[in-house]
Simulated assay, not measured.
Amino acid sequence: MWLVAANVVRWRRYGDGGQEFRPGTKAYRGGTKVYVVSTYGGMAHEDVSTIGRGRGSGRWITIDTGSRHLHTFRAQLVYTPAVLRRARGFCTPPPAREEAEELAALLERLAAAYRDSHYRTSHPTPCLCHTCLVTPE
């Protein structure tokens, strides 16, 4: 089945004005590979349903997360039985490769915009957020 794969950001901004950092998310470690199985929140795709290995147990979990906490969206052919079982409840019929590629490109653009606009304050120094780590000044 073709799904959109992404990685959880290593560090995310947190707290008042985004001046603090936390590794990954509450459910996923930073860098964890997840599969996007559903989007919602209107046409904005601000939140997505994901399948990935949980932070604490390492078991496969399905959870909703903000797209701003994910990066490197890409279409990927999935063979893992646990992921396929969980994804079948969301994806009927399963998306074609072209649909997955289009959604991955859209989510990559939107997630970058959400990361930039979520906190309206300047980045702390030194900054560990995904945007600053990927594009050093």
Rank of each mutant, 00 (worst) to 15 (best):
T131D: 15
A82G: 00
R85L: 00
G42I: 11
S57I: 02
I63Q: 09
R85F: 11
T72Y: 08
S49T: 14
G54Q: 13
G30Y: 13
V34A: 09
R97T: 00
T135L: 06
T135C: 12
T131Q: 14
Y28W: 14
P124T: 02
G66C: 11
S49P: 03
Y119S: 12
C129K: 11
A104V: 05
T62V: 11
S57Q: 11
T62K: 13
E102Y: 01
A104M: 03
G42A: 09
P95M: 06
T50H: 03
E99V: 03
R120G: 06
H71C: 13
A82W: 06
E20R: 05
Q19S: 06
L84I: 00
Q19R: 13
R10F: 05
C132K: 14
W60P: 04
L77G: 00
E46D: 02
N7R: 14
Y114A: 12
T62Y: 05
E101N: 07
R86S: 08
T121D: 06
G52H: 09
Y114V: 02
A100I: 02
E137Q: 02
V4P: 10
F73P: 04
K33L: 03
R13N: 01
R22L: 09
D16E: 14
S122V: 01
L106M: 10
G89F: 03
D16Q: 06
F73S: 08
V48L: 10
D47W: 07
W60A: 04
G42F: 04
P94T: 12
R97F: 08
A111K: 11
S122Y: 09
P94W: 10
E137F: 00
I51D: 02
Y35N: 02
A105T: 07
R74I: 05
T121R: 09
L84T: 00
E46L: 03
A112Q: 12
I63R: 12
L110G: 08
T62S: 11
F21Q: 03
A96S: 14
E108M: 04
A104T: 13
G24P: 08
C127I: 09
G56R: 15
H71N: 12
G24V: 03
R86I: 04
R109K: 02
A96I: 01
F73Q: 11
Y28P: 01
Q76P: 00
G89Y: 10
P81N: 01
F90Q: 04
P81M: 05
E98P: 04
A27P: 00
G41I: 08
L133N: 06
I63M: 05
F90I: 01
Y35W: 15
C132P: 07
A113L: 05
T92K: 07
K26W: 09
E108K: 09
E137D: 12
R86K: 12
K26P: 04
S38H: 13
T62C: 14
C91K: 07
H69V: 09
G30W: 01
Y40I: 00
R109I: 03
Y79R: 08
Q19I: 05
Y35Q: 01
R12G: 07
V36H: 01
R97G: 07
R10V: 04
Y114E: 13
D16H: 10
T39P: 08
V37T: 13
E20L: 11
D116E: 10
V134E: 15
T32L: 09
S67D: 12
E102G: 02
P136A: 11
S122N: 08
Q76M: 14
A87I: 06
R86P: 02
